[in-house]
Nucleic acid binder design. Structure first.
Length: 213
DNA sequence: TGGACGATCCCCT
DNA sequence: GGGGATCGTCCAT
């Protein structure tokens, strides 16, 4: 028994058409909103993992003290300064990875943090990636991908995936539904101190996989 | 070369 | 709701 609530997962039939490069070259906050409802797709050991993006945060480079790119280009954040449509992965707290979608043209250090997705396909593989085989604790599907580091663990995203082109085959984002403005929630970003007054976190209202209310 | 801290998670109370 | 885990990154010496 993996979970008692797996039967609450809605039925999905996403068409897996890649978003074009131009999607990522628009203003970062616009991209952060528009990524909600899109499908994040990861090929991993023969499996196709799919998650619908339900929570994002915009990090706006030079004007945003919370952004890794605020103080300019370094070895760690150089992917942020590249062209839009690439994946920026960083390691934090000594044990976690977080994944961002780079936005804007080359030279602009902006990105959107993927904070949560709703599992759509490959849930068994996500379970294996997230939890130890003999985990003493009872695990539920709703705990799989409701946070930026949980998402990375479930989707097997780590250092090696930093700089991956999102128009390639290993990892890409596909068109999905457009979330109407009335269903998009907005708040301050989580876990930061500088720049926390900006409401640059976006989420699908009422979605079970959003990390916090 | 060292030290402070972080876009977090999990377990315990 | 709070604290510990755990280490790469960055900046100040």
């Amino acid at each position: 028994v993996i979970s008692q609530d797996r039967n609450i997962l809605p039925i999905h039939n996403p068409k897996l058409t890649r978003l074009p490069r131009s999607f990522y070259l628009r203003p970062t906050i616009q991209v952060a909103k528009n990524l909600l409802g899109k499908y994040f797709i990861r090929k991993f050991r023969g499996a196709t993992l799919v998650g619908k993006i339900v929570e994002t945060e915009a990090y706006c480079g030079a004007i945003d003290p919370a952004s890794h790119a605020y103080r300019g280009k370094t070895k760690r954040n150089e992917v942020m300064f590249g062209n839009g449509g690439f994946l920026y992965v960083y390691f934090t707290y000594g044990m976690h990875f977080c994944a961002n979608v780079v936005t804007g043209p080359e030279g602009i250090g902006e990105a959107v943090l993927i904070r949560a997705v709703e599992p759509v396909r490959g849930i068994e593989t996500m379970m294996k990636n997230r939890f130890r085989v003999s985990s003493p604790k009872f695990r539920v599907v709703s705990d799989l991908t409701n946070g930026p580091a949980k998402f990375c663990q479930a989707f097997a995203i780590g250092r090696k995936q930093n700089g991956t082109d999102l128009l390639g085959d290993e990892i890409y984002i596909a068109d999905g539904e457009t979330i109407p403005a009335g269903k998009i929630g907005r708040s301050s970003r989580i876990g930061i101190t500088n720049g926390k007054e900006r409401n640059w976190r976006f989420f699908v209202k009422g979605n079970r996989w959003v990390s916090r209310k």
